[in-house]
Design a protein around this nucleic acid. Structure first.
Length: 455
RNA sequence: GCCCCCAUCGUCCAGCGGCCUAGGACGCCUGCCUUUCACGCAGGUAACACGGGUUCAAAUCCCGUUGGGGGUACCA
């Protein structure tokens, strides 16, 4: 039997890293087993789903390198769900209900106990009409359970399952039926998704059985990815859109590699490795149960490793879009040294922008620390005074700066760097300086001198 | 409230009854290298939530407590 898995996002927002991880694990498993990966757009929430969002999900998945073999859109299949619902009604598994949400809630409140719908309309013979929904009739007793590939045996008592809505009053089928119907219809063999959906399993199982299913897919519920407060990642409060990471210059390979280590780890402990090896080693049952914190620091490290490993030509090609046009020439000349000290593509601009553009405002603390030292004034003045007679090449500038250092018996590189670049950190100093206009260098030195404390 | 899940360094992952005085990775700290930064190299920091069992032996199995999380919609 060939494995068929599906990633089924609701297009109600951009793809975020949690969903991306679910997509990735499905994809890894499909690849590992040589199975089929299905992308199923669950757009039954017609109010919030948009074509733009579907397109953005496609883009994000593609960017990550996650591919799919078949694609479906639930909004194309409403007729089928509705037909299935008709059968459910005919067999007594579903019924019309005219209770408003307020009424249902009010009754739940009045009777105390558990909230949820009480089955009031079960046998009232309601006819379809304005404000009428279709509900699925859940058993009053017994248990519904399954063996989860990751969590083991999970059981729910049927009495805790309310008669849930499967068709809205506007006639649109809801998530649960669509989901149950499609998994059955598409012969899904493994359902791999976030743990936030674990509570819906018994309802879907009941639905499937009512639809005549004699067997069920294997379920595997992934631990959630959480923020620093250990809460489920939320699009609203957390910074988690895959697209944003792309914009910030993260590499897709770094992202997927990092995501693969959240909830799972290779046997030999080597975390950074080609996707082909991850596919080879990946087993769903090895996924851990506890939630994982999305650690951007570690992602950064992964990204740095991938940036360092990039082919230089590819680095230039991919970093260039981040570089201002006015800086592209110097970037071209310094790309290799830029690549060596950058963790993200988006850091490249800052490393070169001071050469042709404006220099960054120095960090106050750094400035005080470096410029407050004795002798700095002499250093800057001497260097400034000799610029006109300096051979304006990297070697010439090095001779100038270090020469002054030897004469005055002090280190000159740092104050000169801070004066000219505005930062303690950055590229090797002399190569970029050689690309600058002498007058600009002089002006920055003068500016630094003027800001020196009068002592 | 009710239902469900989870619990090893700050973080991610190893550990599936003895090999654990608990291992790797990120972070952080120290040193080396270096007239910047980064890289590299050598070290270091730091955890089995708690309480009961079971067993010759428990981080590993069982129960409870505590803590955390998820769900509880005519969202998915």
């Amino acid at each position: 039997m060939t494995v068929r898995v599906r990633f089924s996002p609701a297009p109600t927002g951009y793809l975020h890293v949690g969903s991306a991880r679910s997509a990735l694990f499905n994809w890894l498993y499909a690849k590992h087993t040589d199975g089929t990966m299905i992308l199923r757009i669950e757009d039954t929430d017609t109010d919030r789903s948009t074509p733009e969002l579907i397109a953005s999900i496609h883009d994000s998945l593609t960017w990550l390198g996650i591919t799919w073999d078949e694609e479906y859109r639930q909004s194309d299949r409403f007729d089928q769900y509705l037909e299935a619902v008709e059968k459910l009604k005919a067999s007594g598994h579903a019924y019309y209900c005219e209770c408003s949400q307020e009424e249902a809630q009010q009754r739940a409140k009045d009777r105390g106990g558990p909230p949820g719908y009480d089955g009031y309309c079960r046998d009232r013979g309601i006819e379809p009409g304005e404000g009428v929904v279709v509900r699925f009739r859940t058993p009053d007793e017994g248990v519904t359970g399954w063996t989860d590939l990751i969590r083991g045996d999970v059981e729910f008592e049927n009495k805790n399952l309310e008669d849930f809505v499967i068709v809205r009053s506007n006639g649109v089928p809801m998530f649960l039926v669509a989901n149950a119907y499609d998994d059955l219809d598409m012969d899904i063999t493994h359902v791999i998704r976030g743990e936030d959906l674990i509570n819906t399993v018994p309802k879907v199982l009941l639905l499937r059985e009512a639809m005549g299913a004699t067997s069920h897919p294997i379920y595997a519920h992934l631990p959630l990815i959480v923020n620093e407060k250990r809460q489920k990642l939320s699009k609203r409060r957390d910074d988690v859109s895959v697209d944003d990471y792309k914009e910030r210059g993260y590499l897709p390979e770094a992202m997927t590699n990092y995501l693969a280590t959240l909830g799972w780890g290779p046997e030999d402990g080597v975390e950074i490795r080609p996707m082909s090896e991850i596919i080879e080693q990946f087993e769903v049952e090895d996924v851990v149960k506890s939630p994982a914190f999305f650690d951007v620091k570690k992602l950064e490290h992964f990204n740095a490793e991938y940036v360092q490993a990039m082919d230089p030509a590819l680095f230039i090609e991919q970093a260039s879009p981040h570089i201002a046009d006015s800086d592209s020439e110097v970037f071209g000349e310094l790309a290799t040294v830029v690549q060596e000290r950058v963790k993200f593509l988006h850091e490249a601009p800052d490393l070169v922008s001071w050469i042709k553009g404006d220099m960054a405002e120095p960090v106050e603390k750094d400035w005080r620390k470096v410029m407050g030292k004795d002798g700095v004034k002499e250093v800057l003045e001497t260097v400034l005074g000799r610029i006109d007679e300096t051979d304006w090449t990297p070697a010439g500038i090095e001779k100038l700066v270090f020469g002054v250092g030897e004469e005055l018996e002090t280190k000159t590189q740092l104050p000169v760097r801070l004066a000219i670049t505005g930062s303690r950190f950055g590229l090797p100093l002399f190569e970029p300086m050689a690309l600058m206009d002498k007058e600009v260098v002089k002006k920055r030195l003068e500016m630094a001198l003027s800001k020196l404390p009068e002592s």
